[in-house]
Simulated scan of single mutants.
Amino acid sequence: MPAPENRFKSRLAAGETLIGAWVGLGDAYAAEITATAGFDWLLIDGEHAPNDLRSILSQLRVVEGSASAPVVRLPMGETWAIKQALDIGAQSLLIPMVESAAQAEQLVRAVRYPPNGNRGVGAALARASRFSAIPDYLATADAQIWLGVQVETRAGLDVLDEILTVEGVDGVFIGPSDLAADMGFPGQLDHPLVQRAIRAAIRVICASGKAAGILWTDEVNARNAVADGARFVATTIDVTTYAAAIRDAAARGLALKP
């Protein structure tokens, strides 16, 4: 019995464009509600959301039971953190702030077992192997791991071509907010220079044959990203969606007061 099929990886490999959402509330019950919405993929955020390994695991469980494919974003690309995320069953990882091909190569090694990498061999006691119920896990796990790297600084863009040559990097995600800030335009995601850099980067990624991704909550920007060839695009964030809806509900309710 091989490792489970990674639906996110196989659908991207088939050339699909996948629309997703950011899951940042840090709660499995909330993640389960989002998982009923029908998105192609959901990003469980360990970088900017109040998550630890156990809360990521609880959200991973509920998303896996839905039609949405889970992707886990770690706060950093440390080998030990990647090992733990893979062992709890994450098959698609997104790693922030990648700024060199050497860094990307290190990440590739971290998601692969020896002799092709340096992922620690301990899955026999882990959820990833169904606690040893998948006898062929060690031999088949590498093929089902999807690795995405975030390029979100000028330094990263400067070496984007080099990062794209790294075998084992499956996708490159452009981080608009960090990139805008690094370019000297914090909060100005629609600044012409930021927009030009993002759209050019997406086209370069697509030309390399790797999947380009981005988070755009603005529909026009999201539409442009898809038109430029981006194939994993998140269009909303649970935190801001809930915040906007509950504030609107409060305003409407309070307006009823005599």
Rank of each mutant, 00 (worst) to 15 (best):
G184T: 11
E99C: 01
G253H: 13
E105Q: 10
T140R: 13
A102D: 15
Y242D: 00
S58W: 06
V226C: 03
S208I: 13
K83A: 11
L160W: 11
S55D: 06
G38F: 05
L60V: 03
L93I: 09
A155Q: 15
I246P: 02
G171P: 01
P176Y: 14
P114L: 06
L107V: 01
T36A: 08
G24E: 06
G24K: 04
P50K: 10
I174K: 03
E167I: 05
E105L: 03
A180Q: 08
A227I: 05
R109Q: 08
A30C: 13
T241R: 09
L74R: 11
W146S: 12
A250N: 11
D190S: 14
T153Y: 04
E16G: 06
D182F: 06
D218Y: 12
I246C: 04
D170C: 01
A139E: 15
R109H: 02
Q144K: 08
L25M: 13
M97Q: 13
G171V: 01
E99G: 04
I19G: 07
L60E: 08
G171N: 02
V98C: 08
V23W: 00
V71C: 12
S132H: 12
R196S: 15
R130P: 01
T34G: 01
I205N: 03
W216E: 14
E5P: 00
D136N: 15
D228R: 01
F131T: 03
E47T: 10
F173A: 05
A201F: 09
K83S: 05
V166K: 06
K83F: 06
V226N: 00
P115L: 04
G26A: 02
L25H: 03
T165Y: 08
L179R: 11
M183P: 10
F232M: 00
T140V: 14
R54Y: 02
W146K: 05
A37F: 11
G253P: 05
G65Q: 15
L189R: 12
A227N: 08
S92Y: 10
S68L: 07
A28C: 09
E219C: 00
A30I: 07
P2V: 02
P186S: 02
G253K: 07
S68T: 07
P258L: 00
G77L: 11
T217I: 14
A110H: 01
R109W: 00
K257G: 00
I237Y: 03
I205Y: 09
S92N: 10
S68N: 06
F185Y: 15
V62W: 13
A249C: 10
I95Y: 05
A104Q: 07
A227W: 08
A49D: 13
G77Y: 09
G229Y: 07
S68C: 11
